[in-house]
């Protein structure tokens, strides 16, 4: 199979592949930097919990709209995600329960609730779509939705970059200069939820967080400064989207898991070849 047939042809031939590609690249540009910040805040698990929390909201949107409707499901997901974000903040502040335990309980409950709600009305196919995503469903509306979220994310990150970074690095300092840490924390959680919701149509609710965390882990292995980390994460996420789409197209695989597996492969390769990786340790440079 020629390069053209393998890589270019699917996109020339099919509109849904072009839309999927644009969606994936946009998702990567938003999710990558968000993932880096999540990781630096040691909130990977929070991202996980939120991605599950989005599910019941999306499912209720699904019920109300009577089918796979991105605006309805997206709105439901955003509302549900925000509720869980605020609740878990409250729980970890007011009880002795360890943070990860309270998040684990939250997302197990959310997952069960979401699956239950979808199965009330929808078919098993619908359930699969919600859980694992489907590139076929990405229409023009979905594309605008994803594009809007990515644009909003990038612009917001650019504006609140400094306070967000400081709140992450040294929250005590931000409080000591009356910088208002809590607002930025909430804004950041809002961005996380938005990006998870944007991802779930292409990747499914279960996989959406993968597009945040895996590219971020790759970036952390290669870069030492935050801006470079964010660029690498966005790049890895976008390229994983492209390669994942191509592979899933040729082999008839589900797109979400394939994209995440490509990102996971990038992570494994990075573990081997990054500056502090296994290969450099075993074979020190001879120069």
């Amino acid at each position: 199979m020629s390069f053209y047939a393998a890589v270019i042809h699917p996109f020339v031939e099919y509109g849904f592949m072009r839309r999927a590609l644009i969606a994936c690249v946009a998702l990567g540009i938003g999710s990558g930097p968000i993932g880096v910040l999540l990781m630096l805040r040691r909130m990977s698990l929070v991202g996980d919990a939120m991605s599950h929390a989005v599910l019941p909201g999306a499912a209720i949107g699904f019920l109300i709209a009577g089918g796979l409707s991105l605006p309805a499901m997206g709105l439901g997901g955003i509302v549900a995600g925000l509720i869980v974000a605020l609740l878990s903040g409250l729980v970890s502040r007011t009880t002795v329960l360890k943070e990860d335990a309270s998040f684990a309980s939250f997302y197990l409950a959310s997952l069960a609730l979401g699956v239950l709600v979808v199965s009330l009305r929808g078919s098993n196919i619908d359930l699969l779509h919600v859980l694992f995503g489907t590139i076929l469903a990405i229409d023009a509306t979905a594309l605008y939705f994803v594009g809007a979220i990515t644009s909003f994310t990038v612009v917001t990150l650019a504006i609140v970059y400094r306070p967000l970074v400081v709140e992450c690095f040294d929250p005590g300092f931000l409080r000591s200069v009356r910088g208002g840490g809590a607002i930025y924390h909430v804004l950041f959680l809002f961005l996380v939820v938005l990006n998870l919701v944007a991802s779930f149509q292409a990747l499914g609710t279960l996989m959406a967080v993968g597009l945040m965390m895996l590219p971020a882990s790759v970036a952390q292995l290669w870069a030492r400064t935050l801006p470079v980390m964010m660029l690498i994460a966005a790049g890895v996420a976008a390229v994983s989207g492209l390669l994942g789409l191509i592979i899933s197209y040729h082999f008839g695989l589900a797109s979400g898991p394939t994209i995440i597996l490509v990102a996971a492969a990038a992570y494994c390769l990075s573990l081997l070849f990054c500056p502090s990786g296994a290969v450099r340790r075993l074979f020190p440079a001879r120069i």
Partner: peptide, 13 residues
């Protein structure tokens, strides 16, 4: 702050 309270591995110059 007391030294242990700041994450020194944060990617800042």
């Amino acid at each position: 702050p007391q030294a242990a309270e700041i994450d020194r591995h944060f990617p800042l110059s």
